[in-house]
Design a protein around this nucleic acid. Structure first.
Length: 483
DNA sequence: TGAAATGTTGGGGCG
DNA sequence: ACGCCCCAACATTTC
């Protein structure tokens, strides 16, 4: 029989918060001592260990979580290694009789976690998992015929008519520390933040990782932007979106909390449905990845497998660095590099440009975003790239090709976004800020722009690239034998 | 969660 | 006065 004062381990993963955390709440029940544990286990993530920007975020989020735990009388224990071995080790060291965690849904991780649960139980430990990460877990939403949804709209409709997510529980008011302290590693020794060079130097101007920062961001969004969300969310120069994505990815706030906070504003709030629908896309991505585990690596539609992608390292480099010669694309890629984040509208434009204008495989774009986004999320990154490429479920048709000039003129009409992130173009008149190559030479000179020197000429011509992409798509669809 | 090409309509200039 | 043409403006189709 376990001692009634045996500690319980809370294995923190992508649920780095105290409120709305069922695993933590369950562990703390009955006044039991709690050992909050985080394990750095790059090998257990199916080849998708956290990228650079994510590691920066993780560092700060873990620091914030530790601080918050200290406020309740506990400390976060940091360990490194294969999760199963670490959990058994910490349990043995501490005399813990239970391990609680909140579920993740990535294929490699669900497989690992279910093995771990079996092993822990066979060792006589209590092992329980909970939902903290989704409004609707993937196996709870099914089509009429019992299969997974492949189209967003019916998926979301099914979610909205399913039993609503339970209201979030508050954080425990205090935690009991174990009588025997458990050793951990020092966060600084993990070297999660970059040093040479410190490309994340500017990140902290834009972000406050941790539960308090997440809550702050949500409150600010609900107060200042939700009601105009429908109009403003597509304008990248404006703070019209919630910017909660990294907080949600690391579980510093849960979708149930966001959901409940929106509902609490009352019925018929303008923007509320449109915003919750975006949470729905997040759910849909996790649903897809859960049911189609190869989503991050393989075309969802196998028809795309023979697509004639090009190998063009120079173009890929220009795209990554924001030197394509298309201002809205370059501004986006530089916002990403400078802040670890890119506005959603611009993600679509830049991704479309890589896949359609440059004919570079979506997998390479996925890799870059994985490494550079602070909100990099396996499900959403994979589902979104496949959506843009046209190879995904419920995807944009391949022949929908964004015109980067028109997109710029439509969503950044005064060029404020371009001027901010591509300052060498800042002085151009509105009429040319999205197409400097069309600007009369004397105007360029007066604005300090020298094409090919201070700012690149377009690396591809839009009209020609569009024709090339359509031809590639046609070849895929019909093959050369088609009449 | 497009854009471009093509088709249609109707006002107005003009012979 | 009338028909013809041009071409925005808008709608539809195609990619």
């Amino acid at each position: 029989m376990p001692q009634s004062d045996s500690p319980r381990i809370v294995w923190f993963r992508h649920d780095l918060r105290l409120a709305d955390n069922p695993a933590l709440a369950a562990a703390a029940r009955d006044g039991r001592p709690v050992i909050p544990l985080f394990i750095l286990d790059d090998g257990g993530e199916g080849g998708w260990a956290a990228g650079g920007a994510s590691r920066w975020w993780l560092h700060h989020s873990l620091a914030a979580l530790d601080k918050d735990l200290q406020g309740l009388g506990a400390r976060l224990v940091l360990r490194r290694g294969p999760a199963e071995a670490v959990l058994l080790q910490v349990a043995a060291e501490s005399g813990a009789d239970a391990v609680f965690w909140n579920r993740r849904y990535e294929p490699a991780i669900t497989a690992r976690d279910s093995d771990i649960k079996q092993v822990l139980r066979s060792e006589g430990l209590v092992a329980e998992s909970f939902n903290a990460g989704l409004l609707f877990e993937p196996w709870t939403i099914r089509t009429g015929s019992g299969g997974p949804f492949k189209v967003f709209t019916p998926f979301w409709r099914a979610c909205l008519s399913a039993p609503p997510p339970p209201p979030p529980e508050p954080a425990p008011s205090r935690l009991i520390a174990p009588t025997r302290p458990v050793d951990g590693e020092a966060l600084g020794d993990w070297r999660l933040t970059p040093s040479r060079p410190n490309w994340a130097a500017g990140f902290s101007d834009h972000w406050r990782p941790g539960e308090a920062g997440a809550r702050e961001r949500l409150e600010a969004f609900l107060k200042a932007a939700l009601r105009r969300y429908r109009d403003q969310r597509d304008v990248p120069a404006r703070p019209g979106t919630s910017r909660l994505s990294p907080h949600l990815h690391f579980g510093e706030i849960g979708p149930r909390q966001v959901w409940a906070a929106v509902q609490a504003l009352g019925p018929d709030i303008p923007g509320a449905d449109a915003y919750l629908r975006e949470l729905g896309w997040r759910e849909f991505s996790h649903h897809l990845l859960f049911h189609f585990p190869t989503l991050p690596e393989a075309n969802f539609k196998p028809d795309f497998n023979p697509f004639p992608w090009r190998d063009d390292p120079e173009a890929l480099t220009a795209w990554r660095r924001g030197l394509t010669g298309y201002p809205i694309v370059d501004a986006g890629m530089r916002e990403l590099w400078a802040t670890g984040w890119m506005h959603n509208r611009v993600r679509m434009i830049t991704a479309s440009f890589l896949v359609k204008h440059l004919l570079i495989p979506w997998r390479l774009g996925e890799d870059w975003f994985w490494d550079t986004l602070v909100d990099a999320d396996l499900a959403q990154n994979a589902a979104s790239w496949q959506w843009v490429a046209g190879s995904g479920a419920d995807a944009a048709p391949y022949f929908r090709i964004f015109n980067p000039v028109l997109q710029g003129e439509k969503f950044d009409p005064d060029g404020a976004y371009v001027r901010r992130w591509a300052p060498e173009l800042a002085r151009l008149p509105d009429a040319y800020v999205h197409k400097p190559w069309a600007c009369p030479p004397h105007v360029l000179r007066a604005c300090g722009v020298s094409l090919g020197t201070t700012y690149p000429r377009p690396i591809v011509d839009h009209a020609a690239a569009r024709e090339r992409a359509l031809a590639a798509y046609a070849a895929l669809k019909g093959g050369p034998a088609e009449p």
